[in-house]
Amino acid sequence: MFPRPIEQSSRAARISYQVMLPLALILWLLPLIGVAITSVKPASDLAAGNYFGLPSSLAFSNYAEVFTQSPIGQYIFNSFKVTIPTVIGTLVLSCLTGFALGIYRFRGNIWIFFMFVAGNFVPFQILMVPVRDMTVNLGLYNTTTGLVLFHVAFQTGFCTLFMGNFIRALPRELIEAARVEGVTEIRIFWYVVLPLMRPAIAALSVLIFTFIWNDYFWATVLTTSKETQPVTAGLYSLNGQWIAQWQLVSAGAIVAALPPVAMFFLMQRHFIAGLTLGAVK
């Protein structure tokens, strides 16, 4: 283990480590803590210049106000309407492509794989004008469907990379054995490989959920109205309305951040497994 485990060090070192941990954490999360405190401050505190002290009273009413005075509930609902179908669509497509690329050797395999990987690294600004134009022409502009279709296509790149690598690492004897016994390829996919892919599917669902929930660029490019905009784009316009009302901005920001945060804490193992794929050899 590196560095040397602290238990093997002197008592003084152990204690100072234990003291440093929370201090470092507070310092690290300082901006976030500030915003969290601001979000429960009554407006009068801010007006009176009490920006940092403790709130004079806990104003959870800020949260109530965010929900009643702004369409944030609708925005959050839109986010779910975009995120969940995207996760499902991406997983379906990438299980298929990952299977095809991970199991079979055929001409062009590596080039198709290469295409997915390269597309995944592309700065998405280069897609903006054509994709927006296409979405308008399809009549899907300013709909959650239009946004979902794009996300599914784009995320398929990353997920294929992920699934392909995962499937490649599965024990090949399994598939060979099934083939010897005459099982069709489709059944191999369904009965043999898919069940083994559950951990990858779990990891990708959390990852994609977070990526899509947090997407801001495409939300601003492809949607405009409060009936369709996800919460990231919604926050931008709310920020324009709540000028100088930092207690509302803070509360709104925290509300918008909650779903992916909850997802992360609930499915931490899968999340990190997905994110760090390839970080160990």
Partner: peptide
């Protein structure tokens, strides 16, 4: 895990 939009707002306040 937090959206960059939220990070941006947090730092704008900061």
């Amino acid at each position: 895990v937090i959206s960059q939009v939220v990070v941006g707002l947090i730092f704008a306040w900061f």
